[in-house]
Every structure is written in C-alpha cells, then in structure tokens.
C-alpha cells in the first residue's frame, strides 16, 4: 500500500460502508417510494465505491483485486469514517447520518474533480453529480423531519445528539499523508470544515433542531482502523457469502 492508494481506499471504504448501510433499508423503508429512493442512493454509493476500489487497486500495482479488498479485509484494515458505519436506527437516524455525510461529501467531491491524480478526478466528476442529488434528498428530509411533528423533531434531535460525536473525524489532520495532499491528489480534510458547518447550520436554522452541547467528546480512529463495534457485525454479514465460497463466480 502506498500513501496514495491508502487515501483512495479510505474514500472507497466510506462509500461502500455507507452504501451497505443504506441497502439494509431495502424492503423495510417506511413507504415504498422512500424504499426506492434509499436503494437508489445505496446503489450510487456502491457504484462509486467500485470505481474507487479499481483505481486504488491500480495505484497499489494490482497486487489484489477490488473483491479481495472488500471481502477479505478485517475491520482493522478498513479505513472508513466512524460516522458511516453507525447502525441505521430509526428513519430519522439514517437521515441525520446521511445528511451529515452528504454535506461533507458534496464539497469533498467537488474539490476532488480537480485532483492532480487524473483517475480520481474522473471518478469525482461522476460522484459529485450523484452527491448533489443525495444532499438534496437528505437535506429536504432534515427540513421535513426537523420542522415536522413533535415525534419527528424529538427523534431527529436524538439522532443528531447521538451522531454528532462522529462528525469531527471528517475534518482532522493526520490523514491522508502530507505528501498526498502536497501533490494535489488529495484534499486536506481540515479545509472542508467551515464549508460543511455552514451547510449544516443553514439547514438546521430552518428547523426546530439545535446542535448538541459544545463539550461533547469527539470520536475518531476510523482512518487508522480503530472502529466502533458496529463495523465488525456489518462486515460479517457483507463478507459471509464470499468467505464461505472463496473464488466462486456468478
């Protein structure tokens, strides 16, 4: 693994794990139309992940295939953000998780469209288009739920309080390696914080929701493979077929 391939892997892992979480709603969403919407977004995420794993494998020198990366890595080898691995919970929690990520993803992939690493810039152009739609979907739901009934406001506020501790990790330094940022291939996550916060504040100001207390303890570690307990359970399910029947094709 090179610093560049590790960065690409982290981007792919974010999209895959979030997409897998959303796919868990398939057949269970509160209404048929929303079931289709969430499944569509899940497919977008997993599709983006597929492209990102391909360019990560290439950057590694094709020592392993994207399928090996997805189905035969342990939780400790995954590089995704803690936020995206958090369980779906109720519909409000899924929407809050999606909104907090989308507000980050939309500006990350906007900037990555001009990455100096051409394969990544190409993937980012397609991904950014899809993320604009995802953000529209999740922010409209934030308004609907956060300015809706007493129950929807209470559930959405609860989800916001629970998930807020995983937001800081999107913007801390230390990953990716300085050389990957310096070469213009990667975006320094620290430079995305202000824009993200403005997007979040703009939407929340139109709801009855309030941001959690300032002294909340922020969690991080996903970029180094230190995950919450939830990722292991997700991987066990996602990897079960590939590990029971290694090398099978269909």
């Amino acid at each position: 693994m090179t610093p560049l391939s590790e960065y690409l892997l982290s981007l792919a892992d974010d999209r895959l794990i979030l997409g897998h979480r959303l796919s868990e709603w398939c057949g269970h969403a509160p209404i048929l139309e929303e079931d289709i919407a969430l499944s569509n977004i899940a497919l977008d995420c997993i599709g983006q992940a597929t492209f990102l794993y391909e360019i990560a494998a290439e950057a590694e020198g094709n020592v392993r295939t994207p399928d090996r990366m997805v189905y035969f890595r342990e939780a400790i080898e995954y590089r995704n953000l803690l936020l995206v691995e958090q369980p779906n919970g109720d519909f409000a929690r899924t929407i809050v998780r999606q909104f907090l990520y989308d507000a980050f993803g939309i500006s990350l992939y906007d900037r990555l469209q001009t990455s100096s690493y051409a394969p990544l810039a190409a993937v980012a152009q397609k991904a950014h288009k899809e993320l604009r739609y995802h953000f529209r979907h999740s922010s409209q739901w934030m308004l609907r739920l956060g300015d809706g009934t007493d129950e929807s406001i209470q559930r959405t506020q609860h989800a916001l309080n629970e998930l807020w501790q995983y937001t800081d990790e999107m913007f801390i330094g230390g990953f990716p390696a300085e050389e990957v940022i310096g070469s213009g291939a990667a975006i320094d996550p620290r430079t995305l914080r202000t824009g993200w916060r403005n997007s979040v504040d703009t939407i929340l100001s139109r709801t009855a929701l309030t941001l959690p207390e300032k002294d909340i303890r922020m969690q991080s570690g996903g970029r180094n493979g230190r995950h919450t307990e939830h990722l292991g359970h997700l991987l066990t399910e996602m990897q079960s077929v590939a590990r029971s029947y290694p090398e099978i094709t269909w």
């Binding site: 048929l32 139309e33 929303e34 289709i36 919407a37 569509n40 529209r136 409209q140 609907r144």
Partner: peptide, 14 residues
Amino acid sequence: RAADAENALQNARD
C-alpha cells in the same frame, strides 16, 4: 405517493 411537492419530484425522479 409523496409527503410534499419537493418529495414528489424526488420520488418521481427515482
């Protein structure tokens, strides 16, 4: 089915 007009546009799009 949709909760409001914007939601209807999104569901129709999907």
